[in-house]
């Protein structure tokens, strides 16, 4: 009887929420076992301490930070461009009555197009440079932002447009009210888009060998330098973690001010 009561309560209080840090223990144990019993010369599973050495080696050679900067630059520029274009297109398509029926098939097709397949095409048309990477990343991460904005403007547009006409807002002030009302949704879209953008950035560097984290990974793999590959994987993971934290930090105050998007 006591057990039943406890189970019910525990389910009620943490149905969601952040997983406790002690859940990291299995991963730490796995790495520790790997470190203790892994061989120094294993090509497939080098010990974690070697990963660290490999990353230090890349840092010493002076390619680590420039690559990270290159990757971050493409990533940040792409997020900014995608947010602007996505929000504007989303508002435009969402506020026209025939917008959905006219553009749905095209949008549906484009957003289901795997970014990986588009990278070689962009490379051959635009050449292999960081501008190409930017175009690709924007193309693949714009959809969550665009679609979220469109859905939100559709949701609020009836009430909002009545209010706007009744209060008599025009021009810039009208636009700023609209933008303010869709901002949380735009940010929700950015939240989905950001991890995707990072992956596609690395992917573009990976496939076309323009400088960045992706091309470091490729060259490590082509040299069969497995400690370096594992080390760079960890670096990429940390970058992803960092991006997640930044996005949550930026999102929190805006959502608090404008209310959460549903």
């Amino acid at each position: 009887m006591r057990k039943v009561a406890r189970m019910t309560i525990s389910r009620r209080d943490d149905g969601k929420g952040v997983a406790p840090l002690r859940g990291l223990v299995p991963l730490v144990i796995l790495l520790a076992i790997w470190q203790l019993f892994g061989s120094t010369h294993s090509v497939f599973f080098p010990r974690p301490s070697l990963w660290w050495d490999a990353v230090v080696k890349i840092e010493r050679s002076g390619t680590l930070w420039p690559s990270l900067v290159a990757t971050s630059e493409t990533f940040i520029e792409a997020i900014i461009v995608a947010t602007l274009i996505g929000a504007v297109l989303g508002i435009a398509i969402g506020s026209v009555k025939w917008g959905d029926s006219a553009f749905n098939p095209v949008l549906d097709f484009l957003r289901n197009l795997p970014a990986a397949a588009v990278v070689p095409a962009a490379a051959i048309i635009l050449g292999t440079n960081s501008k190409m990477a930017l175009v690709i990343v924007v193309f693949s991460c714009i959809w969550p932002i665009l679609l979220n904005t469109r859905a939100e403007i559709r949701r609020v547009s009836v009430v909002l447009s009545n209010v706007i006409t009744n209060v008599g807002l025009r021009g810039f002030r009208k636009q700023s009210v609209i933008v303010g009302s869709v901002l949380p949704s735009v940010l929700l879209g950015v939240r989905v888009a950001a991890p995707l953008a990072l992956i596609v950035t690395i992917l573009a560097e990976f496939i076309t060998n323009i400088s960045g984290l992706g091309s470091l990974l490729v060259s490590a793999q082509q040299n069969f330098d497995s400690p370096e590959v594992y080390g760079l994987l960890v670096v990429a993971g940390l970058l992803a973690l960092f991006v997640n934290i930044v996005v949550s930090l930026v999102e929190a105050p805006i959502v608090r001010r404008h209310g959460p998007s549903v």
């Binding site: 859940g23 299995p26 991963l27 990072l198 690395i202 990976f206 992706g214 993971g237 992803a240 973690l241």
Partner: peptide
């Protein structure tokens, strides 16, 4: 859940391409 979920979160947020 408490014992492993954080590990799952770490593993799944590794950029798959890497």
């Amino acid at each position: 859940w408490k014992g492993v979920m954080a590990s799952v979160d770490v593993l799944r947020s590794l950029p798959i391409i890497a």
